[in-house]
């Protein structure tokens, strides 16, 4: 993929592996994407697709024995994978922030909200405690936490789930980061609270020009929150493009299957479309296209199994505004190039 001078974050051919005694797990394979300033990017996929490992490896939070085997992560043109832990600490939490799934486990239960916020501020900035308190209160106000002065004295368990997630977002915003990575930010929350958090995240990203990477298994959340989406399957990106395109006109058989399996896509009380089989474990991914055993299109129009699907890993091809890694789509485009472009 060509270097994009505008990109805030650029990931190129990233490969993350967990060497285990039983064999190696390749959690992220040859993965490339970029994120622009102020852009909201979604990463969608089912459990075991490697979404969270991807997020953790961007922040160098991989737990052993996981490591980045190949590839580059560039932040404002600066290579991150080769930084020492000491150098990375200056970035993490400061320029790159993360929001985790469960707000209650993210926050330290034995420290007050105020202590946690002020600690993080003082670690990166030379601020007096009084000054840090003012900043903390200001950030809590931005995420619409009521009576922020009082919240600073409270412990996480005294707050509800939705309020905790706001506090976590406020902490992520404390140092005015350039990128926020949110791993399933609303999964632990009720729908009414989820709607509030989605609106809040959108507003904050627009106001502060922050790049947001949202990881979710929920296409509804991705659809509301992001402008561009990557679909992951077995460690690879199978499709990427504008979120609207992907939801309304998915090209990759897996993305199509994922969307068609949603209850909304079928009339009530009718059988849902289902993808046969299940996601392979990352240690035994099928050869060729990882999706091929579950794919309905692995046969050629003549009714023979397509050899490419079983033997070769599909490379992304352009289809409309999307990039799709699928031999079948590639064949369609090759056959009717003009028609594909038109749609």
């Amino acid at each position: 993929m060509r270097a994009n001078p505008m990109a805030l974050l650029e990931v190129e051919h990233l490969d993350v592996r967990f060497p285990l005694r039983r064999g190696e797990i390749r959690a992220v394979r040859d993965l490339s994407f970029s994120l622009e300033r102020g852009e909201r990017l979604g990463i969608v996929g089912e459990s075991g697709a490697g979404k969270s490992v991807l997020a953790f490896s961007l922040l160098k939070l991989l737990s052993r024995p996981g490591r980045i085997v190949a590839g580059k992560v560039r932040f404002e043109g600066r290579e991150l994978t080769s930084l020492s832990e000491r150098q990375f600490r200056r970035l993490r939490g400061n320029r790159l922030a993360m929001i985790f799934q469960d707000p209650l486990t993210t926050l330290n239960p034995v420290l007050t909200i105020g202590q946690q916020m002020i600690e993080s501020l003082k670690a990166h900035r030379r601020l007096s405690t009084r000054r840090a308190r003012i900043v903390a209160i200001d950030k809590l106000r931005q995420v619409q936490v009521s009576s922020p002065e009082r919240r600073l004295e409270q412990y996480p368990h005294q707050l509800s789930g939705g309020l905790c997630q706001r506090v976590v977002i406020a902490i992520a915003l404390l140092l005015e980061p350039d990128i926020i990575i949110a791993d399933e930010p609303t999964t632990a929350l009720d729908v009414t609270i989820q709607a509030e958090i989605i609106t809040l995240l959108k507003r904050l990203c627009d106001e502060h020009d922050v790049g947001l990477i949202v990881i979710s298994h929920d296409l509804g959340v991705i659809g509301q929150l992001t402008q561009r989406t990557l679909v992951m399957y077995a460690g690879r990106i199978v499709e990427q493009g504008p979120t609207r395109e992907i939801i309304n006109d998915a090209q990759h058989p897996y993305t199509q299957g994922l969307i068609n399996a949603l209850p909304q896509m079928t009339l009530p009380r009718q059988r849902l479309h289902q993808i046969p089989g299940s996601m392979p474990t990352l240690s035994e991914v099928p050869s060729g296209c990882a999706f091929n055993p579950r794919c309905a299109y692995r046969m050629t129009p003549e009714g023979l199994p397509r050899r490419d699907c079983i033997e070769n890993v599909p490379q992304p091809v352009r289809s409309g505004e999307c990039q799709v890694a699928c031999h079948w789509v590639a064949e369609l485009i090759a056959r009717e190039p003009s028609e594909e472009r038109a749609t």
């Binding site: 509800s160 009414t192 709607a195 989605i198 609207r244």
Partner: peptide, 24 residues
């Protein structure tokens, strides 16, 4: 009504307009 408005739908890009404040 609020619950229906808050649940994300594929066909619109905005969370529902009918919003609830506060929590259970």
């Amino acid at each position: 009504r609020a619950l229906l408005a808050a649940s994300p739908r594929l066909d619109d890009a905005f969370p529902g307009q009918l919003r609830l404040s506060g929590e259970l």
